Simulated assay, not measured.
Amino acid sequence: MNNLLIGYARCSTDKQDLQIQRETLTSLGVAADRIYCDHGLTGTKRDRPGLTQALAAVRGGDTLVVAKLDRLARSVPDARWIAEQLTERGVRLQIGASVYDPTDPMGKMFFNILATFAEFEADLIRLRTREGMKRAKAQGKLRGKQPKLSSMQYKELRRMYDSGDYAISDLAEMFRVSRATIYRSLERTPVSR
């Protein structure tokens, strides 16, 4: 039974909703029981069970349908890997209303261009996020991770370490932090006099 439409939808966080993507896929002719989803998984993670199921469901002559390319792949290598999977099986890819065959030279070129733009868009989102965090930090709204030890504890830790009477593991147990925290704290705290 060839020429099936298999849908795939994905959202990056648990707070996002897949309903709009599902509705889009249904409006494009995908049966509701043929829509595979990943919820709360970023596109940069290759291990996406819904995508794995969708790729397993498509056969030669079928069409994999996604609402937008960034829901399928978020990087050029990932998009190429998916394109190779589709090409090997003779499966077409439909993004929104546009359908193309990855075995066709124009289709391959189009897929690579779209994948490049998807990666560019993901990079822009990361850049905007970093800028937003920087702005929030400047306004005092984002303070970052709080230190595990107070300034007094840092000084006491340094004094105890410099005395030579305590091993790192002893200090970690006394201050109830990891050994790595002790090492980092000692790097940041000047040698006591």
Rank of each mutant, 00 (worst) to 15 (best):
V76K: 12
P77Y: 10
D78Q: 14
D78W: 01
D78N: 12
A79R: 10
A79M: 11
R80D: 13
R80V: 15
R80K: 14
W81C: 03
W81S: 08
I82H: 01
I82Q: 01
E84T: 08
L86Q: 07
L86C: 04
L86P: 08
E88C: 03
R89D: 04
G90N: 07
G90K: 05
G90I: 08
V91A: 04
R92M: 09
L93T: 04
Q94L: 02
Q94S: 08
I95H: 03
G96S: 05
A97L: 04
A97N: 12
A97M: 05
S98K: 11
S98Q: 12
S98C: 04
V99M: 10
V99S: 08
Y100T: 13
Y100L: 14
Y100F: 15
D101V: 03
D101H: 09
P102L: 01
P102H: 01
P102T: 06
T103Q: 13
T103K: 14
T103C: 14
D104M: 06
D104L: 03
P105A: 10
G107T: 00
G107R: 01
G107M: 02
F110A: 12
F110N: 09
F110T: 15
F110C: 06
F111N: 14
F111K: 05
F111G: 13
I113G: 00
L114K: 09
A115Y: 04
A115M: 03
A115S: 09
T116V: 08
F117T: 06
A118K: 02
A118Y: 02
E119T: 09
E119A: 07
E119K: 05
F120M: 13
E121R: 08
E121V: 11
D123E: 15
D123H: 07
I125S: 14
I125H: 06
R126W: 04
R128C: 06
T129P: 10
T129N: 07
R130M: 07
M133Y: 13
A136C: 11
A136P: 12
K137S: 15
K137I: 00
K137L: 00
K137W: 01
A138S: 11
A138I: 07
Q139T: 02
G140K: 06
G140D: 06
G140W: 03
L142R: 12
L142I: 04
G144R: 02
K145S: 14
Q146D: 08
P147A: 07
P147R: 12
P147H: 01
P147N: 09
L149V: 06
L149M: 10
